[in-house]
Design a protein around this nucleic acid. Sequence first.
DNA 1: CAATACAACGGTACTCAGTACCGTTGGGAG
DNA 2: CTCCCAACGGTACTGAGTACCGTTGTATTG
Lengths: 228, 228
Amino acid sequence: MSKPAARIRLADAAFALFDERGYEQTTVDDIAERAGVGRTTFFRHYRSKEDVIFPDHDRLLTLIKDRLATSSHSTGLIAVSDAVRLVLLHYIDEGDLARRRYTLTSKVAVLRDREIASVARYQRLFREFIADWMGDPTESASLRAELMAAAVVAAHNHVLRRWLRGETSDPVVEMDEAMRDVVALFPAPSGSGEAGDAGTTLVAFRTGQDLDTLLPSLRRLVEGGTGR
Amino acid sequence: MSKPAARIRLADAAFALFDERGYEQTTVDDIAERAGVGRTTFFRHYRSKEDVIFPDHDRLLTLIKDRLATSSHSTGLIAVSDAVRLVLLHYIDEGDLARRRYTLTSKVAVLRDREIASVARYQRLFREFIADWMGDPTESASLRAELMAAAVVAAHNHVLRRWLRGETSDPVVEMDEAMRDVVALFPAPSGSGEAGDAGTTLVAFRTGQDLDTLLPSLRRLVEGGTGR
DNA sequence: CAATACAACGGTACTCAGTACCGTTGGGAG
DNA sequence: CTCCCAACGGTACTGAGTACCGTTGTATTG
């Protein structure tokens, strides 16, 4: 019954020692000793010293990969902005553990780098998914996918960090709002010949002139094909 | 005259050995031996084994910091999107060295992570700069700054990687275009009463009708204050 | 020219993360 | 009871990074 307790004892001992002496000042031997197990056992449960703090980033990544694979949304961006919620929910589920990890990563550069590298893997996954979804090998489409993935991850990190710092009580709805903002950033692509689309396209701008003054150039733009 | 040659010989030896045997299969002793220096000398010139490949990320970061500190642009976003060009120019200046590094980071996970961590420091700098520039402690403004910084970095990485892969011959103008795209993503905040801003504002949309058909409703929108 | 100061170097020894391998133990399943 | 197997502990090793010490070559100053 208490067989997999070693893994938990190791994590507890690690966090406790990290709090007491700091991360660099704690050796793996220290952790193993406090947990009452051998050094070998530590590396059987965790691949590295950092791994004690980030145990299930891999699992979460594949979880999201599956979610994306089985998702059917109107656009790739929306699918991704939906899937990324799983990450937030996972952290919330971890509760206090996630917050202890945050205070650690705030102090120790090595851990922060490690966390960032993990987040980059999500971003890469998102970028590739959106690019595949668009199916447009154009350079501008590629850039667009890159921007979308970056925006989703940035917005997610923003809300997540706010929750980790205790600055919000309802991170889920904040995440909804943030993702709406992100989706709103990227208007539907214009010009790609879909069915029945010989209509008018207006681009957004602001001006100090009134509508009548700029109407001629507006008309020239609309009638003159792709304008600058 | 040939006194700081040790540093260069070390870098050459390192890159050569990394190409021959791979990164993990090369020890610091190997590098020092081929460079004809002692092991201690290696660590005098480079803080770590990874540092041989990323020698001047710190210098570049402070360079950009200075650039931002002494820059006067219309918005924080534009200042940042201007400053980030320094990074691209630096890589272009490195030339072939940057490309050899890219092939390495593409293969070795540890190096990729390291590179990502460096980029994250730029992004953090940008985020803080934009947030300071806006001077708006609101949560939405904070999110906006985060999105802007992420977009600038993503666009930069996009163009940089294209150049590293040899997919573009004119990365500078491509960077200009990408940054224009990024700036265009973020419209000026509306509603904040600036001086003399009683002009016309058009929102973006697409329609199947031609311009004359929708002109009346357009006019109604413009004249009728804030329309939905 | 001689004494001194300094910077770069080489060597040794150490700590610690991570890997490989081997033997031991403690239960279930046949 | 015996076989099996999973989890464990111990030992030994490699390699990165640090600390310290002694040496050498070079520039500076009296």
